[in-house]
Computed example of a mutant assay.
Amino acid sequence: MATTLTALRRQIDSAGDLKSVVRTMKASAASAIGQYERSVAALGDYARTVELGLGVCLRSVEQPPRETQTALAATPLMHAVVFGSDQGLVGRFNEVVVDHAVSALAQTRCRVWAVGERANARLVDAGITPEGCFAVPGSVELITRLVGDILLKVQAPAATTQADQPAATQSTALTLFYNRPNAAGYTPVSQRLLPLDALWQHGLANRPWPGDQLPEVLDASAQTLRAFIREHLFVSLFRASAESLASENASRLAAMQRADRNIGELLQELQAHFHQLRQAGIDEELFDVISGFDALSTSDEAKSTP
């Protein structure tokens, strides 16, 4: 009995320690969600400013430079970036985004880059060997470094090119796959960054200017346009990374809430079993005392009888 009670007490203590760890992870995930959501909201104002400037440039440039052309060369080289996680305890976060990417990239010639070791492993299991794997940033400040690394890798020339088309003139397409937060948690989405969409460019060029005077680009309008396109790429990659991180922490928070609930139920069962065994031990000891008292009483009565 003592051994069983000791084992149960050890299990209860372990479950209590695990519950404390889960609650700490819940608090950390909830705090991280707010951090990344605030960064996305703050980025919205800058993104609108970039789009306004890009619209002015598109109106002033008669012939857009090559990177703004929407028509791709034959069999263009496509780059895809799949945002996942480095750590576990996130439910089906990586499976959902990788399945979405694999479905969209089926029968497509592309170079795939993974963000996060878990997403990289899922891509390999799905039959896609990524060109490389980026580490998931641990804070908002580190997202800028990730964006720079992605742009450097994507803009690097491919190791193999078409025989009749140099690498420098090959058209390049860039698509992002990531989870976006919503009321239900998150949903997988894809966003094409390059080539720029013709309808999107037309909408920017015809967007009303918020002020009375329409600005003009004085000199080097094509160069200015390229600068705004680079800023647009930066903003889009930064937003995708921040939304993916917010979704990851939302998934981790949901997983920790389920774990907290399951551990609480397990603790109740263990404590109920512990109290039952303890009460059974107390009852057994009381019965032994009563039986011993009855035996002594019977013996004394027998001795006192003449």
Results as ranks from 00 to 15, higher is better:
Ala2His: 09
Thr3Pro: 07
Leu5Thr: 15
Leu8Ile: 10
Arg9His: 15
Arg9Ile: 02
Gly16Tyr: 06
Lys26Gly: 03
Ser28Met: 04
Ser31Phe: 01
Ile33Cys: 02
Glu37Ile: 00
Gly44Phe: 08
Tyr46Phe: 01
Ala47Val: 07
Arg48Asp: 05
Leu54Val: 02
Ser60Arg: 09
Val61Tyr: 02
Gln63Met: 01
Pro64Met: 06
Leu72Lys: 12
Leu72Cys: 11
Pro76Gln: 04
Pro76Ile: 03
Ser85Trp: 03
Arg92His: 10
Phe93Asp: 11
Glu95Gln: 08
Glu95Trp: 00
Val97Leu: 06
Ala101Asn: 05
Arg111Leu: 09
Arg118Pro: 02
Val124Gln: 12
Asp125Cys: 01
Ile128Val: 12
Val140Thr: 04
Arg145Tyr: 09
Ala159Ser: 14
Gln162Met: 05
Ser171Glu: 11
Ala173Met: 12
Leu176Trp: 02
Gly185Gln: 03
Arg192Tyr: 06
Pro195Phe: 05
Leu196Phe: 04
Leu199Ser: 09
Gln201Asp: 05
Gly203Asn: 14
Arg207Ser: 07
Pro208Gln: 03
Gly211Tyr: 03
Pro215Cys: 10
Pro215Lys: 13
Val217Trp: 04
Leu218Ser: 13
Ser241Thr: 15
Ser244Phe: 12
Ser251Asp: 14
Arg252Thr: 04
Arg252Lys: 12
Ala254Gly: 10
Gln257Gly: 13
Ile263Ser: 06
Ala272Asp: 13
Leu277Gln: 15
Arg278Pro: 01
Glu285Ile: 03
Asp288Phe: 00
Asp288Pro: 00
Val289Ser: 06
Val289His: 04
Gly292Pro: 01
Gly292Thr: 09
Ser297Gln: 13
Glu301Asn: 07
Lys303Phe: 00
Ser304Gln: 07
Pro306Ser: 05
